[in-house]
């Protein structure tokens, strides 16, 4: 129990952040009409591409002699980039179609 409490204390900022983010996420979806759900899903898909930040971080800290980690890291960065770039481009294309009419 004590351990859990101290864990919470250590990471208090983070936990606040998580709760705030949850509310923002809920708030965002609540205001969107069904029509835009597909682009929204795609947009959300692009956003979680932020994992790439983690991948880069890992790459920067990895021991250059550790080949396995290097290869895995490289792969992670590659896949992350695919996620981010592809996600945003697809979303853009979808939204473009809605834009045309206005």
């Amino acid at each position: 129990m004590e351990q859990i409490l101290s864990f919470f204390n250590d990471n208090r900022d983070m936990i606040y952040f998580i709760i705030l983010s949850v509310f923002v996420g809920v708030e965002v979806i609540g205001g969107v009409p069904t029509v835009l759900h597909t682009p929204l899903m795609s947009g959300a898909n692009a956003i979680h591409g932020v994992v790439i930040v983690g991948a880069i971080y890992v790459m920067l800290n990895v021991n250059p002699d550790d080949t396995v980690a290097l290869i895995l890291g490289c792969l992670a960065v590659l896949l992350g980039t695919l996620n981010v770039v592809g996600g945003f481009v697809v979303t853009d294309r979808m939204l473009e179609m809605f834009k045309k009419k206005k």
Binding site: M14, F17, S21, V24, V28, I29, H37, A44, V53, G54
Partner: peptide, 22 residues
């Protein structure tokens, strides 16, 4: 959470909660 990186945390949770609601 692992890296104490707020961008990742915010983005991830945002998608997590938004995605679940969706």
């Amino acid at each position: 959470f692992l890296y104490g990186n707020k961008v990742m945390l915010t983005g991830g949770i945002l998608v997590g909660s938004a995605g679940t609601l969706l």
